[in-house]
Design a protein around this nucleic acid. Structure first.
Lengths: 159, 159
DNA sequence: CGCCATTACTTGGCTAGCCACACAATCGGT
DNA sequence: ACCGATTGTGTGGCTAGCCAAGTAATGGCG
């Protein structure tokens, strides 16, 4: 059966051991999260917006997209679908009618615990074969790498 | 300007520090890769299939999708677009006419070095603020986590 | 006061990626 | 030799996500 989708490093990525590992890890991680989200009738990415609303209900669309780090159009469409699914409501703000204020419905709020459970499960599975020291070191490094990449992206976005 | 899309951990992900860090890191990482791929007229994901062909030209579609870890439909459509872009050719195998054998064109082969450069750049940026020990430890942990997640996904796909 | 730049959001168009279904070729058992 | 199961691929339909262009409301400047 030759275990499926195991990470065999292509020669072309020989010089990108760490980067390729991130790539493969993210794939597996996201697939696992997607499976759990499906069980609660959510699509990957929607949980990020909901989590921002759990933290502070009644945010504007602009606040949501900045905090989630997504494009306006992505957020606009995603919110519309979640509204149609009955998870939230969108209303123009009274003081500025361009702004759309987003509120959770009861159905939306009901997903807070399931989503928190998903993260707990994901975390538990992820760290299951690591020592506490490794967990700490890995998380720290992940944030350092993220910052490095982000900073570099800002300097030379084209390449 | 309150640095954009910096990883502020939502309360709902409080119990998923490491998982959320992977999530954010993958986003930044992928965005940076996507920008570089755009510069060579590629879409994210296409480089994975091309790299498999760089390693061994003339693979079948089934080999490509297993090695890249993608759905058959994704590969089918992606290959069609790359064929239309003149990067590769697809022909039915003589011994089994279900099988599609994929070959690189000169235009496709010409992308090998640019893609290798992309990985080198990505790696260089990623590790720029890490010590060699950290790089090694991080890569090792990433693979361990990937394996843990994959193994667990196989046992309980629904949750 | 009026016009223009800015801001907030929407829409259209594209690809990635998944699932589900459909189809054709091959293989296997009887 | 035939019929069913398997395998390899294609298609349709959905959402995520991006970019680019368009619309509407606000704010600022002359």
């Amino acid at each position: 059966m030759s275990d499926p989708t195991s990470s065999e490093l292509p020669n072309t990525a020989e010089a990108g051991q760490l980067s390729y590992a991130i790539f493969q890890l993210a794939r597996a991680h996201r697939a696992h999260a997607a499976a759990m989200l499906r069980a609660m009738n959510l699509h990957p990415g929607q949980e990020l917006l909901l989590m921002q609303l759990f933290d502070h209900d009644g945010r504007t669309q602009a606040e949501l997209l900045e905090r989630a780090g997504l494009d306006h159009s992505t957020v606009s469409k995603s919110l519309r679908r979640m509204q149609e699914a009955g998870l939230l409501t969108r209303e123009p703000a009274s003081h500025d009618r361009r702004v759309m204020v987003v509120h959770l419905t009861n159905a939306g709020r009901a997903l807070q615990e399931p989503i928190a459970d998903m993260w707990r499960t994901l975390e538990q599975v992820s760290v299951s074969n690591l020592t506490p020291d490794q967990i700490q070191a890995f998380t720290t490094c992940a944030r350092i790498i993220e910052k490095s990449v982000r900073d570099h992206s800002r300097q030379s976005p084209g390449e």
